[in-house]
């Protein structure tokens, strides 16, 4: 039986199409990005090889580290919010009346494009006519915050919008995973007298641990390279208070004509993602034989 499942030709057939695609369209750009990072290049004229100068500059660039810090915060925030998504998914996975419909409704925001989501949240946070401040005023709050204009609040304000944007994404993954749990196991636990919370915690969670680990990696990597809403809602401002790695890279490469330096930021972002993913794998794979 081993022979059937180790047929080299079939393995090649199954993996090569995707592998070729990835190598050509993802790895070539990665290599090129790293290479451009070694250049002084405005993206238009001649390239000058400057060795590691861009990368050394990066190490001393306060803006880069600020952006990295903001990206890390987002990664931590997104990872924590996985707990919330998981709880919702677990609740909906119970045979509650209407949970099927609720689950679908919960996924709706995910269908909206970033353009729409950004406009919606801009309306929520508008300091004068916005939804949030209108509500606060009804409750008698004076001096309502200016959300996106306040350097102290801007990050958390955008994070909330991002968490909301991605709710559907994770809930749909968790829901599908929970659907995959054989009914017999849940039934057995119920006969043993376990209550729904115990079933969720002791039966379901261990069974979908593999999926949870995947979502942790997705949340962290996705956060570190996150761009869309931040760019549209604040452009990284005010004065860099909400700048993240991807928006900083974009500004350097496309707005400031420092394509070489921007590429170095992009490459550094990739390396940071790699290191953190490796760490997460080390941390979560320690007590399970499952590797991913």
């Amino acid at each position: 039986m081993k022979q059937v499942m180790s047929n080299k030709l079939i393995i090649a057939m199954y993996t090569l199409p995707a592998l070729i695609l990835i190598l050509a369209l993802v790895y070539v750009p990665i290599v090129m990005t790293g290479y451009y990072g070694l250049m002084e290049w405005d993206g238009i004229g001649a390239k000058t090889f400057i060795g590691l100068e861009n990368y050394i500059g990066l190490m001393q660039d306060a803006k880069f580290w600020d952006s990295a810090y903001h990206s890390f915060l987002l990664a931590a925030f997104s990872t924590l919010s996985l707990v919330g998504y998981l709880v919702i998914s677990l609740v909906l996975a119970n045979k509650l009346k209407g949970s099927e419909l609720l689950r679908k409704i919960y996924l709706i925001p995910m269908l909206l494009s970033s353009v729409a989501i950004a406009q919606l949240w801009l309306k929520i946070y508008d300091p004068n006519n916005g939804m949030l401040n209108s509500l606060l005023e009804i409750f008698g709050v004076e001096n309502t915050p200016t959300w996106l204009a306040d350097p102290k609040l801007v990050l958390i304000s955008i994070f909330i919008a991002i968490i909301w944007q991605y709710a559907g994404f994770y809930i749909i993954i968790y829901s599908a995973a929970l659907k995959g749990i054989p009914e017999s196991l849940v039934e057995a636990a119920r006969i043993d007298g376990a209550n729904p919370i115990q079933i969720a915690y002791k039966v379901k969670l261990p069974l979908i641990a593999g999926v949870i680990k995947v979502t942790i990696v997705l949340a962290i990597v996705g956060s570190l390279k996150y761009f869309d809403l931040i760019y549209v809602m604040t452009g990284g401002g005010p004065n860099g208070a909400s700048e993240v790695l991807a928006s900083y890279m974009y500004k350097e490469a496309f707005a400031s004509y420092n394509f070489g330096y921007g590429s170095a930021v992009g490459f550094a972002l990739l390396v940071i993602c790699l290191i953190i993913t490796w760490l997460v794998r080390k941390l979560t794979a320690s007590n399970e034989e499952i590797q991913y």
Binding site: L122, P127, T146, W147, G237
Partner: peptide, 21 residues
């Protein structure tokens, strides 16, 4: 300046002018 000016896009700020606020 209008409250929250640093977080407002030009289009949004213009809205206050057009709405005579």
């Amino acid at each position: 300046f209008v409250k929250g000016y640093n977080g407002l896009a030009n289009d949004e700020a213009k809205g206050y002018f057009i709405n005579e606020q």
